[in-house]
Design a protein around this nucleic acid. Structure first.
Lengths: 115, 115
DNA sequence: CCGTATCCTAAAGGATACTG
DNA sequence: CAGTATCCTTTAGGATACGG
C-alpha cells in the first residue's frame, strides 16, 4: 500500500501498461491531476522502481515514462483492483438503494465463495 | 484505494478472512495499532460495507467483527497484494544490492510476461 | 472489554504562478 | 514541453488520558 498508495498511482500505472507515455500524454489522459501532483507521483514511482524516466534533450523537451519489470508485474493486481472498484461502486453507490441484501449478482470473477 | 487505503485495513482484512474476531483479538493480532486507530479503521470499513459489527451487551462487553460478502470478495486481491508486497520487499530491499538487473527470478505467480 | 476525548505532528493533496 | 516554487487546506495517524 505504501507503493500503490497515491491518489493517482493506479491510474498512472494503467496508462503506462498501455505502453510508454510522455508527460503531456499522461496529463491529457488524467485531466484532473495537477502538474505538480503528476510530477510528484511519477518521481515517487520512479524512486520505488516501478517506472523509468527518460529525458530527451531536444527543443521542445521530451520526457518519456515506461514501466519497469516491477511495474509491469502489478498488471494483474491493478486489473483486479480496477474490476473490484467498479463492481463495488456499481453495487454500493448505484441506485442509491444500493446493498440492500448484500452483493449477490455480478461479483468480480473468482471472488464468489472465496478460496 | 479509497476503501483499502488505510494503514491497517489490509491487515484487519487478513485477520477477518480467518473468521469472526473480537476487538481484543484484533488488538492482540496487530500489536502496533493503537486502540483509537483500530476503532477508526473498523468503523470506516463498517461504513464502507466491508464488515459488520455486532455488540453483545454482556459484562464484560463483547463486540465481534465479521466480513460481509463485499469484504470477503477482496480475498483474492488482498492475497495478491500480500504476495506482491513480499516479493517486492525481498527483491528491492533484500541484500541492499537489490534490483541490479530487474526482477527476474521469483516473480509473483502469473505476473510474468503479463497476459 | 471496548471504546471516547483531546491534542498534536506529519504527510498528502491541491491552487496558482513562474521558468529553462 | 515539462517541469519548479510557494503557499495553503485536509486527512491520516498517533500518544495519552479517561469512561460506561
Amino acid at each position: 500500500m505504501e507503493v500503490l498508495g497515491g491518489r493517482w498511482k493506479l491510474a498512472i500505472l494503467k496508462q503506462l501498461l498501455g505502453g510508454t507515455r510522455r508527460f503531456s500524454e499522461l496529463q491529457r489522459a488524467l485531466p484532473r491531476i495537477t502538474q505538480r501532483m503528476l510530477t510528484r507521483q511519477l518521481r515517487e514511482m520512479e524512486a520505488d522502481g516501478l517506472l523509468t524516466r527518460t529525458v530527451y534533450r531536444e527543443v521542445p523537451p521530451r520526457v518519456e515514462y515506461a514501466l519497469t519489470e516491477a511495474g509491469r508485474s502489478l498488471d494483474a493486481i491493478a486489473d483486479q483492483l480496477d474490476t473490484w472498484g467498479r463492481w463495488y461502486r456499481d453495487t454500493y453507490r448505484a441506485g442509491a438503494g444500493g446493498a440492500e441484501e448484500g452483493p449477490g449478482e455480478k461479483r468480480p470473477a473468482g471472488a464468489a465463495g472465496a478460496p
